[in-house]
Simulated scan of single mutants.
Amino acid sequence: MSGSFKRVCVFCGSMPGARPSYAESARELGRVVAQRGLGLVYGGGAVGLMGIAADAALQAGAEVIGVIPHGLLKREVGHGGGVAMHVVDTMHERKAMMAELSDGFIVLPGGFGTLEEAVEALTWAQLGIQAKGVVFLDIDGFWQPFLRTLDFMQEEGFVRPGQRPLAMQATTVEEALDKLAAFRPPPEVQPWLRPDQA
């Protein structure tokens, strides 16, 4: 693993989802992150896929950092033992800190919040605010409808062909981490804004 790739941020649901494979993948992600000597950055909750990934990473000996707003701390049952917890004021601060603390993003199945976090990370990459990869871990085809939507956006002229590859996909945890470690922004992506202008 590259010396510059030290922590991975995971975006994922605060619920476990309908299929056991979602929880299994979250658990595997936590284990493999630890096996590779990486740290895990996540939304700070103890519930759903968030809690499963964090628990697995902790149990395997990884550094785990949680970032959660005050308002969600009780609702999402902020994780306790072993997690280095950062409590912030707003959702925007949460996303900005998660991005600052990590070197790439893996997107597990989730709902509105997961999708919003992932799309913002893609937008920041598109604008050159950050040069970190975003990989959708496509468990049982979960992300296929969304990825097809991105293809349609490109076909309709709203996403440039050179920028569409920013939304990477993988079907295994190992593949997702390999893609993040190897990620380099496409040459078509030019910085439009500085990080402090996000």
Rank of each mutant, 00 (worst) to 15 (best):
Q144G: 11
A182Y: 12
M1W: 09
G44M: 01
M91S: 01
G80I: 15
A53G: 01
V10N: 10
A131W: 08
Q197D: 12
R31G: 06
L73D: 04
T114P: 08
A18E: 12
D138N: 15
M168A: 01
A23C: 11
G78Q: 08
I68Y: 07
L101V: 07
T149I: 12
K132L: 06
F146L: 11
D196G: 09
G78I: 11
A125D: 04
A121N: 12
K179R: 15
S21N: 09
V77Q: 06
Q59Y: 00
E156P: 09
V88N: 08
T123I: 05
T149W: 14
S4Q: 12
G113H: 10
F158S: 07
G157V: 05
A99Q: 13
L29H: 03
G82P: 12
L49E: 03
L147K: 01
V10E: 10
F112Q: 13
D140H: 08
G113P: 13
S21P: 09
H79N: 05
F5M: 06
E116L: 05
Q130T: 13
P20M: 06
V10H: 06
L115G: 08
P185Q: 13
K95V: 00
G78A: 06
Y42D: 14
A60M: 02
E24D: 14
Q163T: 10
E28H: 12
A118Y: 05
Q154W: 05
Q130M: 07
A62I: 07
F136M: 00
D89A: 15
R27W: 04
E116C: 05
A181V: 08
G13Q: 01
R194T: 15
R7P: 11
